[in-house]
């Protein structure tokens, strides 16, 4: 089958749309993990973000307000996680799971009244003239705004972590919290900020799902994307730009399942839908098998409780 430019552009657009929520949630988790905090509540924060964005947008008609509220809601969830793990020294794995279970329940509860409510999708931010260029025009300049925002955030995070003093402190806190504490850096304060950033990004990723990707509210609509984002952070070996690459790879897998069926290959849709989950397992295995590489790249204090004995 011959693919024309239009089809190629459409595939690229679909790929970007599938990749963006993953990239957003994953970059938030990356920052959190770099500071030494493993937050398994991404899925829950995404769902709460998705439902708040939808509820606010459906009521006020203002998607930007919806996104802001989604980020705030994600941060509130993250604050709860931070209070338990950083304040009350609770186990991070258990608390993260609690955050996800709670988020699933809370979003279903809040979203009850919004099931089946339609919502107009966001307009794409076509950049005039440039988006009219064949192929590269629509691919690079015809996406919805959050696609660009997600790339900008990844660039900003990469710059912050590697080029600024704040990023250096954050990494130090994640590598050795006792040493960072001893030379006077606020371990807990740094981690709170990182966790809150993670919450905001997960909330925004959720907003993308319920406002752009499928403009409606469905219970559990994140369908494991929060967990895939967690796997992406490992896949990227905690490097922001590799994260973007990973997210687009997954975006590709997600839309491949749709297009294979479009090409007339007769595989049941349920089996095709397994692809992103199987791909997640595959990349985890491929990356993790090199234990040394994980050890060298993973923040050394990840998941560890910080309680200075003085």
């Amino acid at each position: 089958m011959e693919m024309d430019l239009g089809t190629t552009a459409a595939i690229a657009t679909a790929m970007a749309r599938a990749a963006t929520p993953l990239a957003l949630a994953a970059v938030g988790e990356l920052v959190s993990e770099k500071s030494g905090v493993l937050n398994l509540g991404v899925e829950g924060m995404m769902l709460v973000g998705a439902v708040s964005a939808f509820a606010v947008t459906a009521t006020t008609g203002n998607p930007v307000l919806g996104m802001v509220v989604a980020m705030a809601a994600g941060m509130l969830m993250a604050l709860l996680f931070g209070f338990l793990t950083l304040g009350l020294l609770a186990n991070q794995v258990a608390t993260g799971l609690a955050l996800t279970i709670f988020g699933v329940g809370l979003s279903a509860f809040v979203g009850k009244g919004f099931v089946g409510t339609p919502l107009p999708g966001l307009p794409s931010l076509d950049i005039p003239f440039l988006s009219d260029i064949p192929l590269i025009g629509p691919v690079f300049f015809g996406q919805d705004p959050l696609v660009y925002v997600s790339v900008a955030i990844i660039a900003a995070v990469s710059w912050f972590l590697n080029r600024t003093r704040g990023g250096l402190i954050l990494r130090a806190v994640g590598e050795n919290h006792d040493a960072a504490h001893a030379i006077g850096h606020g371990v807990i304060a740094t981690r709170y900020r990182a966790v809150l950033f993670g919450g905001a990004m997960s909330g925004l990723a959720g907003a993308y799902l319920s406002l752009v990707y499928t403009p409606m509210w469905i219970e559990n609509m994140s369908a494991g994307r929060g967990w895939i984002a967690l796997a992406l952070v490992v896949f990227a070996t905690w490097k922001p730009w590799r994260l973007l690459l990973g997210a687009y790879l997954f975006g590709g897998v997600t839309i491949a399942q749709l297009h294979v069926q479009g090409l007339g290959v007769n595989i049941p849709s349920q089996l095709m839908s397994m692809l992103p989950y199987l791909a997640t397992i595959l990349v985890l295995v491929l990356i993790s098998r090199d234990a040394t590489r994980i050890r060298l790249n993973a923040p050394a204090c990840i998941g560890k409780v910080f309680h200075p004995e003085r």
Binding site: W227, L278, T280, L284
Partner: peptide, 12 residues
């Protein structure tokens, strides 16, 4: 393969 069981068991 040293793969994290939290993520793999959940994907499965």
């Amino acid at each position: 393969f040293n793969a994290n069981e939290i993520l793999t068991s959940l994907m499965l």
